[in-house]
Nucleic acid binder design. Structure first.
Lengths: 199, 199, 199, 199
DNA sequence: CATGAATGAGGCTTCATTCAT
DNA sequence: GATGAATGAAGCCTCATTCAT
């Protein structure tokens, strides 16, 4: 029963992670008790602990999985051919954020994950790597822009990538806290900022 | 110690808030126990609770105070005359973030505060108002830019302000997690992005 | 220990209430810490709180249960056929009080419950109802006495019932504080008082 | 300054005891914090502790004082010449209870004092003596009744006194908890009970 | 003498985790 | 494998009491 067992195991882990995500997205890691996660999952306490060593283990697994999907998302967006204008790229990202910011949405995990990572060295790496990965995509994007002549040849692609990266967590925070902006806001704001100076 | 001046009282509150800030900045709100704050402050449990009703009360007071100082900072930066270029404005902000991101630095509170606000309706307002205040400054900045012809006359200042606001929390998150950027990175990245397209 | 019978659950509640009763009877509600109750019960803190929401919850459950048993007792005593003389009825009640006034006895709860009820509106109703119930029995008794010609036809059964009710808490207090009286004292005292005037 | 000082001291003690009585009567001994007593008294914490060694000391002093006044009251009532009928004597006592059962009334202390006495050996004696004293008055009353031929010559005055004593705390408890009775209820109930059997 | 800020032990309760069934 | 009752350390907070001013 190896194959079946493995599949089964993976499904159980998924089920647990989904429940945990919903809880954590709603109330954060510390406000959600394991009891909450257990109830949401429909499993028993013992069952949960058969699949995950501890609450921190669940958090780490969740962070990894979420980071992975964010990474894929940004990769898709930045790799489009032909390269869309910058405002379109960040606009698509903003739209994806908005789409995933429902009450249980995965995006709501992000601020809790950043906070947790800054509070505990064990989680820090888990949060750095996806952030570094996102930046790598944006640095690559800057390089493409240089190649296509959309960016000065002497610009530092790393600096440009890092600067663009600010938008990503920044939009998440602003959107989740204030909620009165959307992808169009970003597109229009960026369009105005990036346009050749008004004359 | 009998009747004591109002100053003294205010100083005690400060002392407690400073200790709490150090603890919370290091480990977040939930990982820091009141015992930690108490030890850090050098006072006793009872003394703390003479000045603050609860741990949440301390958190709220701290959030308010920190928000206030961030607001003043951005106001100073955006109100400079003559208006510095955008890259300079955001660069100065980034520099201030870096300056306040030491191990106990006030800036390290921000991600914890955002996370906490998203986890508890009671704290939400406390985090929204400063964020909205920061945006107001940036919207005003956009209006000034329009007046000075640095921004298209038909641009929406609100959209531009919201877009710029993404930089602020975004830089905080990126800097605290990755740490390998600084104000120069932002200045140079923005300079490249805002320059008339390379030709 | 997985799923367990409802009986078991009820037994656990009983076990906890019994332990609490012993503690509270000995030292009152406030002098008994939850630690005391926990130690007495042989369970852990967490186990107690699986069955009761709070210390107050335990107190309320205990009060309800004790009130119920007092009520049943007085009902049995007053409903006897043929109706015993008054001195016998109150004498039996006094005997029951004495029987239940051992170091951990249920009767020792009563003064603490009265005190607690007078100190907190939440508990007040819980103490009033049993007292009103006891009086109802005694009012009924007075009515029976009228029917049987043992009480003047124009007597107010409510007043007689209320007057008789004084004996009950009064004996409890006197017995617990002084301890040098018993059922015989009451029987003999009442016999002398109720007898036709000496001539 | 000996005399003045002594008077002053006694006045301060009175002031403190009055405040404590009000607090304790309202909320019981344990629900009233020293802070409550301090605020009510208008003095400072330090001042209170100059006049009383501890909270328990205040409670004991208060119990003694209250007991004394109850004793005097019952003495007056039972010593009247010519001896009023029993229903009148207990009726007067009931009236006095009602008079002193206002929100801060001294009578409201009694149940708390009984509860406290049963919970702590140190306070027990303080509550027994007044109760024993009250009984002594009632035993003497029974003896007078015998002398006047109102009680069978072979009745045991001690048993009669103890039986009558039940009325006193019993009325206090019933009145404070239910509140729907008064001196008239007692007079009328006793009148009916003590009257020669209806015929 | 008076003040009231400070103390710190101890109270109630929660919750991540285990393990007997 | 699954269950969920049980554990117990640790968290937040209160409050009788003290003592520097």
């Amino acid at each position: 029963m190896p194959k079946v067992s493995d599949e089964h195991l993976e499904m159980r882990r998924d089920q647990i992670l989904e429940s945990a995500r919903a809880c954590f997205a709603r109330k954060g890691f510390h406000q959600s008790s394991m009891q909450d996660v257990i109830k949401e999952s429909g499993l028993s306490a013992g069952a949960i602990y058969r699949y995950f060593k501890s609450k921190d283990d669940i958090i780490a697994a969740l962070a990894a999985r979420t980071a992975g999907s964010l990474d894929r998302l940004l990769e898709e967006i930045t790799a489009q051919e032909p390269m869309p204008p910058l405002e379109e790229i960040l606009g698509q990202y903003a739209a994806a954020v908005v789409d995933n910011a429902g009450p249980d949405g995965a995006i709501r995990l992000a601020p809790h994950a950043w906070s947790a990572a800054l509070a505990s060295p064990e989680l820090l790496d888990g949060a750095r790597q996806p952030m570094a990965g996102l930046r790598a995509h944006l640095v690559r994007l800057a390089e493409r822009m240089q190649v296509e002549g959309l960016l000065a040849a002497d610009a530092d692609p790393h600096a440009v990538g890092a600067t663009l990266l600010c938008f990503l967590p920044g939009f998440v925070i602003q959107y989740l806290l204030l909620g009165d902006i959307d992808a169009r806001t970003i597109r229009s704001g960026l369009h105005a900022l990036l346009a050749p100076d008004a004359t």
